[in-house]
């Protein structure tokens, strides 16, 4: 029986162009969708929903972000701190601000509190901030598109 010889060449030239096109499209997509902002967001916080909480236009200049967890602790600069202890951290912030020629009343304190946390703890945080001279607060909520 005669063996049929393949007429195909030993190497096949695959056209890589469409694959590279798609791959670069994917990279571009991920680049655009990626969040490069330095906004402090912690997955432990489940923000309350509000239909008026539309994303803010423009950045708040050098804000202080305090995140209150469900268990009543504050995440400050990635560290878990009890609510009553944030005073000393805020004092340090205040000193740093004064060194750079700013007053604490010009700074905004962003309060990212969990919706399940106690309202009194949020008020405690506000009161401690007020004692240190901070008076601008931004209560953060998640934008609710559903209603």
């Amino acid at each position: 029986m005669a063996i049929r010889r393949a007429g195909a060449p030993t190497t096949t030239d695959i056209d890589m162009t469409p694959m590279i096109d798609v791959t670069f499209q994917l990279i571009t997509f991920f680049l655009f969708i990626m969040n490069f902002s330095e906004a402090e967001q912690d997955d432990r916080i489940q923000l309350p929903l509000s239909q008026l909480a539309k994303p803010v236009e423009g950045l708040i200049e050098k804000p202080i972000t305090l995140q209150l967890t469900n268990s009543g602790n504050v995440i400050y600069a990635g560290e878990l701190v009890a609510v009553r202890d944030i005073g000393s951290y805020l004092e340090r912030e205040k000193m740093a601000m004064r060194d750079s020629g700013r007053e604490p009343n010009a700074a905004t304190v962003i309060v990212r509190a969990d919706g399940r946390a106690q309202a009194g703890e949020v008020q405690d945080i506000i009161r401690i901030c007020q004692d240190k001279g901070f008076e601008r607060f931004a209560l953060r909520a998640q934008y609710d598109e559903g209603r």
Binding site: M34, A53, K54, N105, Q130, E135, R136, A138
Partner: peptide
């Protein structure tokens, strides 16, 4: 290129839109 795609895929964090209620409360 595949390394880049993998990096972006794994570091992707879906961020939900957030907004603020501004309150001015001096002591």
């Amino acid at each position: 290129v595949f390394q880049l795609i993998s990096f972006f895929m794994f570091s992707l964090k879906v961020v939900s839109p957030e907004g603020d209620f501004d309150i001015r409360m001096p002591l």
